[in-house]
Simulated scan of single mutants.
Amino acid sequence: MSDQPYLIPSAPSQFEEEIKKSVFITYLAHTPNIASAKAFVEQIKTKHSDARHNCWGFVAGRPEDSMKWGFSDDGEPSGTAGKPILAQLAGSGVGEITAVVTRYSGGIKLGTGGLVKAYGGGVQQALKTLQTIEKKITTKLLLELDYGFMAILQSLMPQFGAQEISADYSEAVSMVVEIEVRQVDDFTQTVVNKSGAKVNVTALDKL
């Protein structure tokens, strides 16, 4: 369900390990969309431009929205880096996240199985220390009402977690509130009932 909240990173995470003289550095960051995911990848590539490989994967939206997934082996054998990275991210239940794993090769071949384990394992370890917060899916409503109904509205808003964004106090009151999508129907119904249908509620944006 697109109105359900989901976890996103609240701070970057990093994990480094050495495997058979190859150094693997895993970076995790919050990237709310594909553009920011790609920008983060480029940032790490620039930072480690002397590394042989900067492999990556991202989940640039809701955790289950595979239309916003991406990955790259960046020169490693096909399927040994990008897919294991993405698999860890997709299985974490965290959205809006990008992982870049930088490899400084030590000259000892790890084999395909070793690479899969190294790239996937680095992301797995970084995820263990990742701090997350819950992202609630919100929308905005326009409320139009006479001043006499303000007391009703002000008592109902905290019950449903509605936040005032802006208000125009002229002959009547026009107020824009932000509210979690899951609460819209109940909030609207309650406002209409309590005001005898004298408060007009309009959705300003649809998901």
Rank of each mutant, 00 (worst) to 15 (best):
M1P: 09
S2T: 07
D3F: 11
P5D: 05
Y6F: 13
I8A: 04
I8K: 11
P9M: 02
E17R: 15
I19F: 14
K21Q: 13
F24Y: 09
I25E: 00
T26C: 12
P32F: 11
K38Y: 10
K38L: 11
E42A: 12
Q43L: 12
Q43K: 15
S49Y: 14
D50I: 05
R52C: 03
R52L: 04
G57Y: 00
R62D: 01
D65R: 05
W69R: 01
G70V: 07
S72W: 04
G75H: 12
K83E: 12
L89T: 02
G93T: 12
T98A: 12
V100P: 03
V100G: 07
V101E: 01
S105L: 13
S105K: 08
L110W: 06
L115N: 02
L115M: 06
K117Y: 12
Y119L: 04
Q124W: 12
Q125K: 15
L127V: 06
K128G: 04
Q131L: 15
Q131W: 09
K135C: 03
T138G: 01
T138Q: 13
K140A: 08
K140Y: 07
L142I: 03
L142K: 10
E144M: 11
L145H: 11
L145V: 05
D146C: 02
F149S: 09
M150V: 12
L156G: 01
P158R: 06
P158C: 06
E164L: 08
S166F: 08
S170H: 15
E178H: 10
R182H: 11
V184T: 09
N193M: 10
G196M: 04
K198L: 09
N200H: 14
N200E: 13
A203I: 14
D205Q: 13
L207D: 07
